[in-house]
Design a binder for these strands. Structure first.
Length: 690
DNA sequence: ACAATGACTTAGGATGGTTGAT
DNA sequence: ATCAACCATCCTAAGTCATTGT
């Protein structure tokens, strides 16, 4: 296993940020009064009814009444002050604390009710525990929002004169606009995209739109275009980048850091929060996934005039670059985005939003798991209901019930319908077509087998053979009767109908909640089943990964096998072999040492025997760890664990497991993940139950 | 009803820095 | 010191789902 950063690190990072807050706060202080209060426990204001009062309630959130919208389903534990848990594990830190700025002690509430004098420099507080505070109701997402706006893509830099484009074998100097788009294509020459007909056709069409009339007249066939020098140029550039000296690299790094510091944070309410994507997407060629009809189209450069800024009225608005204007500056605190623009390929809106570690994302994430936990409580009832519904007289109800069964059992996505010709042809549950399943009354010794074969999100193939209840099977036969392959399997159903139904069954229930629920419950149950108390840490972690893998398989999270997979597997195997040899050598040595000791019967030789024994134990353990590693890697070849870990698994399950078995949480979550799940790290105890 | 829009979550691949072996 | 493997981060596409508009 490799090194893990010590726990302390995140605390440090956070503290580093604190000073900055101070600046912001001060600066915007004129906002005053109100802001101040918001911060501590005092908060609020929230206009709405006071029914939301804060439930100091402890773990059982059982009784939640709550109206939809901002419900509090969460359990609120009383605020405890516990210090960042970096407790323990103190030993390893090494790089971590480098910068520790002497922060002060402060206890949690930063708001300091107590001393609240504003001006006071904001004391260095510890990490803000937003999860110990009340939430907004009414769809209000924030009361104050200030940021610096987006960072635009750098302007196009024309090619050096010696890099030429050839048309039909002859050098041709392109106008700037035409050249820029040519470089987008030239850069990608090695990519198989550029060999696809659709890609080429779309590219060429859009490229021609950028051409001057002379260029357009001349360049009429993409096959006659020679982008090789352009391609070489960018390759060389990338090499050059890699070959830069340390100083040069450092300089770039510093510049990035500066940009991050300036644009990468915003002030939301009284807290400085990290922004996820503060850069506007650069122009380029659209790369859709799968068979996308728009692949190769030109994604145009966004200008300030395309950008909408969202911030609070009383904040200092970001300024557009000199000589330009924003499309609009609005003050909508019912949404979470800071910046938006409309993208030209699909006409959809893109946003700049906050990082997952932010309060606004964290709260929502927490809430998502609470909804899934509520489903846990009533899933039994829902299941019996849809079983009943398989017998309904109404076709729409049967379809709904069978679809729901798939969503529940197989963790299929809802499956919205999509506009044909605008996107790749992919489906989810409600949009399955007859051609996506095959029915086998009997297959491989099992009865009533349904074979699924379709492309889901991101054009990832879903292939599965599942035995189902006879009733489901019969229903499917019925749904498919007299239909053509390309007809909808569930012709009386769509996601809107399904979700409306689910909403009636449980507040906040939608199709995707089943994925969250089934993923989390599977992890919990697999961990219970797979963790052996006597295993060492690496073996326990293997168990964790296997539990995680069970979920990834359930959710069909795949990845292309790493290009270097075979090789790295071989290397690992070689290591194992070496270790084995070492082990037999050691054993031989032990034997001879024993023989020797028998003869000599002196202390020294006895000691040698002991040493040898120990060495063997150590080697055995190393060997075992290597083998565990190999197993883990092999099993993981085409499975991506990250997606479920990040989006489907209630982090409190993992935290509790770590606590229970004394596994350092950094073995499970890296720094970014720990930041995202700070709420869970702080609140989950070893007995947490999903 | 239902289509379109808007906001927000979920997703895999690309990129580039770090690390550990040689 | 060099190099490849590894992995965190970035990137942005592709979903979900509620709301709005017709």
């Amino acid at each position: 296993m490799n090194e893990h950063p010590s726990v302390m690190r995140s605390l440090v990072v956070y503290k580093a940020g604190v000073e900055y807050i101070a600046k912001w706060t001060v600066k915007s202080t004129d906002g005053k009064v109100k802001r101040e209060k918001e911060n501590g426990f005092t908060i609020p204001v929230v206009k709405s009814e006071p029914e939301n009062v804060f439930y100091p309630s402890p773990k059982q959130e059982k009784s939640l009444k709550r109206e939809r919208e901002e419900n509090f389903e969460s359990e609120f534990k009383p605020k405890k002050i516990k210090i960042e848990n970096d407790k323990a594990k103190g030993k390893k830190r090494k790089q971590d604390d480098e910068d520790v700025k002497p922060k002060k002690t402060k206890n949690n509430k930063k708001g300091e009710v107590a001393d609240g004098k504003k001006k006071a420099k904001p004391e260095p507080e510890e990490k803000w525990k937003w999860w110990e505070e009340e939430r907004y109701t009414d769809g209000v997402k924030w009361r104050f929002l200030e940021h610096k706006g987006p960072v635009f893509a750098p302007p196009y830099e024309p090619l050096p004169g010696n890099i030429k484009f050839y048309y039909d074998g002859k050098h041709m100097k392109l106008s700037i606009a035409t050249e820029e788009v040519a470089t987008f294509f030239g850069k990608m020459l090695d990519h198989e995209y550029t060999t696809k007909e659709v890609f080429r056709k779309n590219f060429f069409k859009d490229w021609r739109k950028e051409m001057s009339s002379e260029e357009k007249a001349k360049i009429t066939d993409l096959k006659k275009c020679d982008f090789n020098e352009i391609n070489d140029h960018f390759k060389a550039q990338s090499e050059a980048r890699k070959a830069k000296t340390k100083e040069q690299k450092l300089k770039i790094k510093e510049e990035n850091e500066r940009l991050l510091q300036e644009y990468g944070f915003c002030l939301m309410d009284t807290h400085k929060e990290r922004i996820a994507n503060f850069r506007i997407e650069p122009p380029g060629l659209f790369r859709g996934r799968g068979d996308h009809p728009k692949m190769g189209m030109l994604k145009r450069r966004s200008r300030p005039e395309d950008i909408i800024i969202n911030c609070s009225k009383d904040s200092k608005h970001p300024k557009p670059p000199p000589g330009t204007k924003w499309k609009e500056v609005r003050h909508d605190n019912k949404v979470t985005w800071l910046v938006s623009w409309t993208e030209n390929i699909q006409g959809s809106i893109k946003y700049i939003m906050l990082n997952p570690s932010s309060r606004i994302k964290g709260e929502k994430d927490w809430q998502k798991y609470e909804t899934a936990r509520r489903l846990k409580k009533c899933v039994g009832r829902l299941r019996s209901q849809y079983h009943e519904d398989w017998k309904s007289k109404e076709m729409r109800i049967r379809q709904r019930a069978v679809a729901l069964y798939f969503i529940d059992k197989l963790a299929l996505r809802a499956g919205n319908e999509k506009e044909e010709g605008e996107t790749a042809d992919t489906v989810g549950c409600c949009s399955l077509r007859v051609e996506h399943i095959n029915l086998y009354p009997e297959k491989d010794g099992q009865e009533f087998v349904v074979e699924f074969d379709f492309l889901g999100k991101d054009s990832i193939r879903y292939y599965n053979k599942v035995p189902v209840e006879k009733r489901v099977f019969k229903n499917l036969q019925l749904f498919m009767e007299n239909k053509a392959a390309e007809d909808d399997l569930f012709d009386r159903l769509n996601t809107s109908i399904l979700n409306k139904h689910l909403q009636e069954l449980m507040d906040g229930l939608t199709a995707k909640v089943f994925r969250t629920y089934n993923a989390s419950i599977t992890l919990q149950q697999q961990l219970k089943e797979l963790t052996s108390p006597d295993d060492n840490i690496p073996a326990k972690i293997l168990s964790y990964n296997r539990a995680n893998r069970a979920v990834a398989i359930l959710c069909n999270h795949q990845r292309a096998a790493p290009k270097t997979f075979e090789k790295s597997m071989q290397n690992l195997q070689a290591k194992i072999d070496t270790k084995k040899d070492q082990l037999s050598d050691s054993r031989r040595e032990l034997k001879s040492a024993k023989a020797d000791a028998k003869v000599r019967r002196d202390e020294k030789s006895k000691k040698t025997v002991e040493t040898r024994k120990k060495a063997i134990t150590r080697i055995e353990e190393q060997l075992m760890n290597l083998e565990v590693q190999a197993t883990d890697r092999e099993e993981n070849k085409q499975i991506a664990l990250g997606t479920s870990k990040l989006n489907y698994l209630d982090p409190r399950i993992s935290v509790a497991w770590c606590k229970k078995w004394e596994i350092p949480v950094e073995k499970i979550y890296n720094k970014t993940q720990r930041e995202k799940f700070a709420w869970a790290l702080d609140m989950a105890e070893d007995d947490y139950e999903f």
